[in-house]
Amino acid sequence: MLDRHLHPRIKPLLNRLVATLDKPGITPDGITLMGFAIGVLALPFLALGWYLAALVAIALNRLLDGLDGALARRRGLSDAGGFLDISLDFLFYALVPFGFALADPVNNSLPAAWLLFAFIGTGSSFLAFATLAAKHEIDNPGYAHKSFYYLGGLTEGTETLLLFVLIC
Rank of each mutant, 00 (worst) to 15 (best):
M1Q: 09
L2G: 02
D3P: 04
D3L: 12
L6G: 02
P8C: 10
P8E: 11
R9S: 12
R9P: 03
I10D: 03
I10S: 09
K11Y: 04
K11D: 10
K11L: 07
P12C: 08
L14H: 08
N15W: 01
R16I: 05
R16S: 06
V18K: 01
A19F: 00
A19G: 04
T20H: 09
T20A: 09
L21T: 07
L21Y: 03
D22R: 14
D22M: 09
K23P: 00
G25P: 07
G25E: 06
G25Q: 13
I26G: 09
T27C: 10
D29R: 15
I31G: 00
T32H: 05
M34I: 10
G35K: 07
G35A: 12
F36K: 01
A37W: 03
I38K: 06
I38P: 01
G39Q: 08
L41W: 05
A42P: 11
L43V: 13
F45Q: 13
L46C: 11
L46Q: 07
L46P: 04
A47G: 14
A47P: 03
G49Y: 05
W50I: 02
Y51G: 09
A53R: 00
A53V: 03
A54W: 00
L55K: 07
A57F: 01
A59C: 13
D65A: 12
L67D: 00
D68S: 09
G69D: 00
A70S: 15
A70I: 04
L71K: 10
A72E: 01
R73A: 02
R74I: 00
R74A: 02
R75L: 04
G76F: 00
S78T: 15
D79I: 03
D79K: 08
A80I: 03
G81M: 01
G82Q: 08
D85E: 02
D85V: 04
S87T: 14
S87G: 09
L88M: 09
L88T: 13
D89V: 09
F90R: 15
L91D: 04
L91V: 14
L91Q: 10
F92I: 10
F92H: 15
Y93Q: 14
A94N: 14
A94P: 06
L95V: 14
L95Q: 15
P97H: 11
F98N: 03
F98L: 15
G99A: 07
F100K: 00
A101H: 01
L102E: 02
D104K: 08
V106T: 07
V106M: 00
N108K: 10
N108D: 06
S109T: 15
A112F: 02
I120T: 12
S124A: 13
S125T: 15
S125C: 10
F126L: 12
A128V: 13
A130D: 04
A130R: 00
L132A: 07
L132C: 05
L132N: 05
L132D: 05
A133C: 06
A133R: 08
A133M: 07
A134R: 15
A134F: 03
A134G: 10
K135R: 15
K135H: 10
H136A: 05
E137I: 06
P141T: 12
Y143R: 15
A144W: 02
A144F: 00
H145K: 15
K146L: 05
Y149M: 12
Y149Q: 14
Y149S: 13
Y150V: 06
Y150G: 06
G153N: 14
T155D: 02
E156Y: 01
E156P: 06
E159H: 14
L161H: 08
L163S: 09
F164Y: 15
F164T: 05
L166H: 12
L166G: 10
I167F: 08
